[in-house]
């Protein structure tokens, strides 16, 4: 049974990852593989859309912790959007909102990227 899926699309030059299902210590490796391959291709303006993500455990947050510096060091960022309240609570409990840009929707993430580059 597959309880986690990632879709990768391009939105006006930004890499968007749509997460779907449950992100735990088992499924986190899928996200890790996709992020690593983007970084290897120097694609560093990444938006992760959590709209269809129902559940996250700390192993999921761990993936963002492990790669954010690599992405920022090549001039990009990972911006997070569309989290449901439960998923946001986990990020909040661990203090992520001061360290990551978390937005209500993709438009805000795109706007921040454009602002950052000015």
């Amino acid at each position: 049974m597959k309880n986690f899926k990632i879709n990768h699309r391009n939105k006006s030059g930004f890499e968007v990852l749509d997460l779907q299902g449950e992100l735990d210590a088992h499924t986190a490796s899928q996200l890790e593989d996709v992020l690593k391959s983007l970084i290897n291709k120097n694609k560093s303006n990444i938006i992760v859309n959590f709209k269809d993500l129902d559940y996250i455990a700390s192993a999921g947050l761990g993936v963002f912790m492990a790669y954010i510096e690599d992405v920022r060091s090549i001039g990009g960022d990972i911006k997070l959007t569309n989290m449901n309240e439960k998923v946001y609570n986990v990020f909040d409990l661990l203090g992520f909102p001061t360290l990551y840009d978390i937005f209500e929707d993709e438009q805000h993430a795109v706007a921040k990227f454009l602002n950052d580059s000015e």
Binding site: M65, D70, L93, L94, L99
Partner: peptide, 22 residues
């Protein structure tokens, strides 16, 4: 300390913090 861990590209230790919180 999540900020320090990010700088060191480390992860982990968060599970216990969550258990105690929840």
């Amino acid at each position: 300390d999540i900020r320090q861990q990010i700088e060191k590209r480390k992860r982990g230790g968060m599970g216990i913090r969550l258990m105690k919180n929840l």
